[in-house]
Simulated assay, not measured.
Amino acid sequence: MTVADIVLVVVVAALLAFALYDEFIMPRRNGETLLSVPLLRRSRTDGAIFVGLLVILIYNNTANGGSALTMWLLSALALLGIYLFWIRAPKIIFKQQGFFFANVWIEYTRIKEMNLSEDGVLVMQLEQRRLLIRVRNIDDLEKIYKIMIKTQ
């Protein structure tokens, strides 16, 4: 096994662990889920570039007679990239004491100020950081409001 294969195994394992954590573990942490709201995706351009580069690497590996293990690892990395950039939907998960946003736990007590912009972006001001929450469905903002009032 070459150094490149070892690096690929580590990267594939890390991305797989993140995908499993995001899909199965995070919704079960810190109590019962009160509300899970899908968010707008960011630009898919980065994902297309990443997967495109992996396709080029797979082609070069097969054209130059590279090892089968490297091809399988690159293919697994490409599939994980497709899942993470196109299939998986980002979400905000509300719990009794706080919420998960971008896989980070934030307690309700940290929120100093909340505003709603004209284009439907919920802005939460924390101590030193501002969260911009772009929901996919504008009606979800009312559900978020009800959860925030109920938990306060």
Rank of each mutant, 00 (worst) to 15 (best):
T70I: 01
G52Y: 04
Q128C: 04
R110H: 04
A102F: 02
A48Q: 03
I92S: 02
R29I: 07
V123N: 03
L20Q: 02
R42N: 14
D5M: 03
Q152A: 15
G98W: 09
T2Y: 07
I56A: 15
V11T: 08
A19G: 05
L84G: 11
K143W: 02
L132T: 06
E23S: 02
E127C: 01
I92T: 10
V3C: 02
D139W: 01
I56N: 14
K150L: 10
D139Y: 04
L84D: 14
K150W: 04
V10S: 14
R134S: 12
R29D: 15
L79P: 05
V121Q: 13
I49F: 09
W72R: 14
G31C: 06
S43E: 14
A78G: 05
E23N: 09
L122T: 01
A4N: 06
L54P: 07
R42C: 07
G81N: 06
N61M: 00
F99L: 07
E32P: 06
V3Y: 12
N61P: 07
S117L: 13
M114G: 05
F50M: 09
I111V: 15
M26C: 05
L35M: 09
V12G: 04
L53T: 10
W72T: 07
I87W: 12
I149Q: 11
S36Y: 06
I106E: 01
A14W: 14
P90A: 00
L74G: 10
L53P: 08
K91P: 05
K150Q: 13
S67A: 12
A68D: 05
R136Y: 12
V9T: 06
E127H: 02
F85T: 12
Q128S: 12
T33F: 09
V10Q: 05
Q128E: 12
